[in-house]
Each structure stands twice: as C-alpha cells, then as structure tokens.
Amino acid sequence: MSTDLIAEARRQTEICNACRYCEGFCSVFPALTRQKAFADGDISHLANLCHNCRGCYYSCQYTEPHEFALNFPAALAEVRQDSWERLAWPQPLARRFHDSGVALGVVAAATFALVFALLQMMKPTSGEGFYAYFSHNAMVALFAPAFLLPLAAVAISLRRYWAETGGTRLRWRNVVGGFRAAANMKNLNGGQGQGCNFEDEDRYTDTRRWLHQAVMYGFLLCFASTSSGTILHYLFDMQAPYSFFSLPKLLGVPGGILLTIGTVGLAWFKTKADPKLGAQRVWGGEMGFIVLLGATGFTGLALYAATGTALVPVMLAVHLGFVLAFFLLLPYSKMVHGFYRLSALMIEDQKQGISK
C-alpha cells in the first residue's frame, strides 16, 4: 500500500470529519463520521465508496488557496486506483493497462481480430450464421477460458480487498443492500438528489448517472442475451442464428444500443472534466476501458446489421477481437471498479448495521 497516498488521504479525511459540512452528501461522508481514527483499510473502503461526483470539492471552503489545500475527490481517486492495481492478480498487468489503456486495448483487439480472420481459413464444412465461419465447439473452447479465468483473477483480488477493509461474513440483507445501491446509483447524484458535478464544475446534472446506468444495464442485457442463447442451445436444442424476435436478439440489440450510447457519452464527459480532481496518471487507462467496452457493443450491432452480406466475416473477426480483448483485460482495466464498488457497498451495509 502506498504510504504517501494513504497519509494524504487520511489527512484530508480527518479534516473533512472535523468540518462535516458535506455530511449529507454521498455515502462516503456518513461512513467517515462513524469514527475518529482511520486505519489503512478504512481509507481504502472510503475510496471505493466514492463515485467521484466531485460535489464535495465545489462545496468545500478548504480547497486551494486555503492552507489545507483539500482535494478530497483526487485523494480518494488515487487510493482507489492504488487498491485496484495493488490487489490485482497478477499485479504487474494492472499497472500496465492503467498507464497505457487505449494503446494496449486497441493493439490487443486488433491482434485477436487478425487471429480470428486467419482462423476463418479453417472454417467448418457446415453451419449457419456465424457458425458457418467458426464452429460452436471452437467458440466454446476459446471463450469459456477467456471468461472464467479473468473472473477467477477478480475473485482473488476481491478476497484481498475484503480482508483489507474489514468485511465480515455476508448476510442476505447486506447483499440486497449492496445491489440496491449499485442499481439505482444514488451516490452519483451526490446523495441529495440534485445531481453530479463531474463534468460541469459547480453546476449539477444527472446526465453522468444516466450514462452510467445505460452502460451498466446495457452490459447486463448483452450478458443476458448471451446467457439466453446458451440456454436455448443446450437445454432446448435451439441453435443460432436466432430471429429478431427471439430472446437473445430482444435482449442483445437494446443492450448494444445502451452500451454504445453510454460509453460515447462517458468518453465525451471525460474530456470535459477537470483532470486535477481524479487520478491523472490513469486517464489513458480509463479511456481505454471505455473504448473497449463501447467497441464491444458497437461492433456487435454492426455485425448484426451486416447479416447476410459479404461484410460478415470481417465484422465477425473484429467483434470477436474486441470481446476477447475486453474479457482477458477485465481484471486489469477499470471494469474491475464495478466489482470493488459493489463490494464496498455491501461492506458499508454491514458497517451501518453494526453502528445502529
């Protein structure tokens, strides 16, 4: 754990705890008022509760040029970033992506797309739709490990985080409380219902919250689409390709649209936001994550639109390249923040129950 980052975040946390002007803001502030002294794990917990809405910064009377020079969003962002990199497994890959995410993501996707294009030279003798270019068994052999192994790496990382921040045995109500907080993203409106200050300084807006919800629900719809296709294939012997009014398409098309709109909006907001209020070193990594996630949704839609044309082989290779790159890099990209934030919300639900 970076001693300097923790020390600076602790200094600012103690000042905020003494002031308490922002007590009604997001869940970070009620959490820090429960105690007077903060262990390293407490600081990590507060950092992963923070949604970087930045409302506290624009409301604070102790920012520069005051001698306290508070920049609480940036202090927590640095600790949060450090926790993702430090607790990742294997660790070196995380820092590499966060330093050069756009380049690494694009190169990985392009390399995998080229591999898939070359594999089409060995396409099966039979099959419909996409399976005319890759057999179902080949798809499973490639993507099952690419999905399961990164999830195992994330699980190891979360176990370390859980131990560090003092999480105890989960109860059902903690799980429900964490998922509820994640689903409605209350903390992205500052906790007071007036909105977020991320992209427009002291002006409030809920747009960032809506874009995050578009990304989250778009991704979940795409995942549900793939899952429903798997169920139809194995349980009901209904094999792809599926019609537009089938469950995989009714879930996947809206999911791809939401994912594309959400990521484009977040990328645009990223260019408007003040970089001094976040972890500046990892701007490229954050943008790389957005590019990978958005390209996964967009190329999926483009592939569906190209159905029945000569573009299918090219679009299929490109889409699969982005999907494979996204999943393999998942434990080391900002995608992992969703797992950490959900864990932090569950731990916070635990701590709230203990304090009552």
Rank of each mutant, 00 (worst) to 15 (best):
P275T: 12
A302Y: 02
V102E: 05
D82N: 11
P254L: 02
M238V: 08
L277H: 09
L46M: 09
G190L: 09
Y304K: 10
F68H: 09
P313A: 15
I261Q: 02
L32I: 14
E8F: 04
G285L: 01
I347H: 03
T125I: 12
P248C: 15
S135V: 05
A132C: 10
A306S: 11
L324T: 07
C53K: 01
L211Y: 02
I290E: 06
D237T: 10
A109T: 12
A31W: 00
Y131T: 07
H51T: 04
Y332N: 00
E164C: 09
G285S: 06
E348S: 08
V28W: 00
L93D: 00
I290A: 10
V253H: 05
A103T: 15
L158D: 04
K123T: 11
S59M: 10
R171M: 08
G229Q: 06
A183S: 10
E199T: 15
I6W: 00
R209I: 07
S227G: 14
C60K: 09
K276R: 14
Q61L: 15
G308C: 13
N71S: 12
L247H: 03
G255V: 00
G191A: 11
G338T: 12
G129Q: 05
L277Q: 08
M238D: 03
R341K: 08
F29T: 07
W283H: 13
G218Q: 00
F339K: 02
F112L: 12
V291F: 04
A181G: 14
L292T: 11
Y332C: 06
P90N: 11
Q61D: 12
S228E: 04
G190I: 07
A182T: 10
C26P: 02
A182S: 10
L324H: 04
F322G: 05
G41M: 06
R54D: 03
V318I: 13
L259P: 01
G190N: 12
F339T: 03
Y204D: 14
F223G: 13
M139H: 07
K249T: 10
Y340D: 02
K334M: 07
H337D: 05
A31K: 03
W162N: 10
D349P: 04
L158E: 08
R209A: 05
D99V: 05
L251R: 01
H212Y: 03
I43L: 07
